[in-house]
């Protein structure tokens, strides 16, 4: 039975169950313990499992993420919370040089059951250093898996699947999704962790999006429906690997692709999605794929400008209309 729950609560529940089920699982990060996590994701776990299982770290991102790598080498399942993706930049050595490469360099003889949870994206006027979307930086690293859940249901399951995997998985959360409510049915069998989901059927064009933008895309699709344009919405759920089959099947039906991403346009995630689908669906396309993305500018603090630098529902509707109307 599904119950209504917030995104952060779904993550919290998953972590609680993981900690209870497997003593190899432990959490570490800044203010995850006593404080309960800056987005409440680890609330209550410190009291329940104690400081060895839920560890407050100093502000030393590179080293505590590296610690996670070391612990994973001996078969533990560390869940590292990096407070926001912006600080993950300080831990890129641990993520890219260590987590993604050590098992390979050891000839495949070592496990890397490391999970890195980190929120990102443009929230509300946090200014340029705190509004980044760095999915492209991580997508380009072989050896990493990246999931981008957009609903409480996916957050719950994809986090569980990530922690139980022996490969390093980055769970990219969005700062504005934590307080979104949605159904959670822990009994419903989950799809494979990296499978995309068609959230809405439509014949006129395919909207491919992920994380918060997947929700905006669905909202836009409803609006387009009222205007007589039926958009199919594919929620990627994963950025590495990408479920090309689900996307390509949709584009082959609709012949038109609009990729919606909050990431900056230039060399962003959308570039990979558009290129990958163009390769796969070239002869099915009735128009060049369109990428609706963040402007190539650091995020301004001013709220009005901030909103203008990333796609809004209105923009998705406008872009979709343009794409469908092209040539008529």
């Amino acid at each position: 039975m599904a119950e209504k729950i917030r995104y952060w609560q779904a993550l919290n529940r998953a972590l609680d169950e993981l900690l209870a089920a497997d003593e190899n699982v432990f959490i570490l990060g800044e203010d995850v313990g006593l404080y309960g996590g800056s987005y409440r994701v680890t609330e209550g776990l410190y009291a329940k499992y104690g400081e060895w299982r839920v560890r407050d770290t100093p502000i030393s991102e590179d080293s505590f993420t590296g610690l996670g790598v070391g612990a994973a080498l001996m078969g533990l399942r560390p869940v590292v919370e990096i407070m926001t993706i912006n600080f993950a930049l300080l831990a890129l050595d641990a993520i890219i040089n260590l987590a993604a490469k050590v098992p390979f360099m050891a000839g495949g003889r070592l496990p890397m059951g490391l999970t890195i949870r980190t929120p990102g994206g443009v929230a509300r006027q946090l200014a340029a250093q705190h509004s980044q979307r760095l999915e492209h930086t991580l997508m380009n690293v072989p050896g990493l898996r990246i999931v981008v859940p957009s609903t409480p249901q996916d957050a719950y399951w994809q986090l569980k699947q990530a922690v139980l995997s022996d490969e390093p998985v980055v769970v990219l959360e969005h700062e504005l999704l934590y307080f979104h409510e949605g159904p959670l049915d822990p009994a419903a069998p989950p799809p494979p962790p990296h499978r995309a989901i068609v959230r809405r059927r439509g014949r006129d064009l395919t909207l491919v999006a992920y994380s918060k933008m997947a929700l905006l895309a669905q909202e836009a699709a409803e609006r387009l429906g009222e205007q007589g344009i039926e958009a199919e919405v594919v929620d990627l759920r994963s950025l590495s690997p990408i479920d090309w089959n689900t996307c390509a099947a949709s584009v082959a039906r609709t012949h038109r692709l609009l990729v919606v991403e909050e990431d900056c346009r230039f060399a962003g995630a959308g570039a990979e999605i558009a290129a990958g689908l163009t390769e796969r669906c070239f002869t099915r396309l009735e128009a060049a794929p369109m990428r609706l993305a963040g402007l190539d500018i650091p995020t301004p603090y001013n709220g009005t400008l901030e909103a203008r630098t990333i796609p809004q529902v209105d923009d998705i509707v406008a872009a979709a209309r343009k794409l469908v109307k092209e040539g008529s």
Binding site: A127, A128, Q129, Y301
Partner: peptide, 23 residues
């Protein structure tokens, strides 16, 4: 209006900024 609370700058007064990434 680009920086906000965490990023005050005033080069004339040699106030070389507020930085939001710890360290």
């Amino acid at each position: 209006g680009m920086g906000g609370s965490m990023h005050l700058f005033d080069p004339e007064r040699r106030f070389m900024g507020g930085y939001a990434i710890v360290g």
